[in-house]
Design a protein around this nucleic acid. Sequence first.
RNA 1: GUGGGUAUAGCUCAGUUGGUUAGAGCACCAGAUUGUGGCUCUGGGGGCCAUGGGUUCGAGUCCCAUUAUCCACCCCA
Length: 407
Amino acid sequence: MKALRGMKDIAFEEAKKYLYFLDIASNIAKNYGFSYVETPILEETSLFKRSVGNSSDIVNKEMYQFIDKGGHDVCLRPEGTAGVVRFFISNKLDRVQQKYKFFYYGPMFRYERPQKGRFREFHQFGCESFGEASVLEDYTIIEMIDAILKKLNIAYTLEINSLGCNECMPSYKERLVNFLEDKKEKLCQDCQRRITTNPIRTLDCKNNDCKTILQEAPKLPEYLCNNCKKDFELLQKLLKENNITFTINPKLVRGLDYYNKSAFEFVSNELGAQGAIAGGGRYDKLVEYLGGRATPAVGFAIGIERIIDLIKLPNEPREGFYFGAMNDEGVEKLLPLVKEIRKNKKAILEYTPKKLKAHLKAADKVNAKYCVFIGEDELQNDTLWLKDLEQKEEKILTTQEFLQMLK
RNA sequence: GUGGGUAUAGCUCAGUUGGUUAGAGCACCAGAUUGUGGCUCUGGGGGCCAUGGGUUCGAGUCCCAUUAUCCACCCCA
């Protein structure tokens, strides 16, 4: 029996890191005014077809899609934004003239070939901000990710780009397609296909021939309209002023169709080929596109598995109590004490009678702060032997004294 | 979907040009003058060598297939 391909159990060290990350990320998100939302893992397939877009492989071949018993075309969510936007619209929040900020986390599913940092079930932590058109929000979101990664002690490089808006993007795309059509025969198979499916992706091609050809290609930032250009410059200014180092990557294209204007990606160089640890950007058209009232929005997602790979957990301090005895009678005497402690502290009771030495070893192994032991003497005198494993101090106590000590 | 690598103890891996009872480290259990932890030492339990075929007197070792897994392409967090 094994977990399915590309899926795995999160336990032990990884589970600790998972919770550690969630704790830090959620708290920072709350400090930035985001509130928690949990949306269903299963959604209508059309939601993703319309939002993530047709040019994306995610929708074309990577979705866990099926017809449910009611005949509905549904799928496991391959990403988080679409669901949150669907929630936003179906609760008619687009009708309220107000700003809404949400954070979420949970499993996402993509039927891909697994490799380092890539799984079929993976977890994302994300934030979505609705109703705020100012580029200050774009900046703030980047600042927030920076704060999370700094707190986790994770090194990264930040790449930013502007994808333009409805005014400047289409004309750029046209220019690029014209350029690509001219060189079509020299491009690799993938890029030839991309000319029609997603021309901007060609900028990102790793094929060496394509790379040299595309150096001549029109550069996106040079074709931005005045408005987009102004915002992009302000974003850079704010990042600089706040000591967030970045590079402009004119080839940075987000994989999902809904992005416009600011796009960014946080990359780690310690992860191999799947180095993106966080990515996001603005998506001002998506709410309207999914049937809501036009609402500007910006957001991001962090890949939790990739973050977990980079987290170094701080040393855990000794915590709680370990109880053991030398015979069955002693173990039974410990039972009510353990119950008492568990009301507000961690306590572990070993049921198997052992020698003191074995208990001390075991207490050490579970990282307990105290070891409580009942041996022959203690049983006879109705006392407890207690050792502080950190301070290496030991005491003989009555049950009363012990309970008193806890207060 | 396309390449390449790997598959031996719970984990990480050795295993010579095919040759007798398959090894180490970690982990686990038990001991080292009677009740004192993290270190050390000694001993112990644990393996259908991924599965199915083939070559051979003889296969963990060579060949083929299957499956799983890893890395890369692709895609993306």
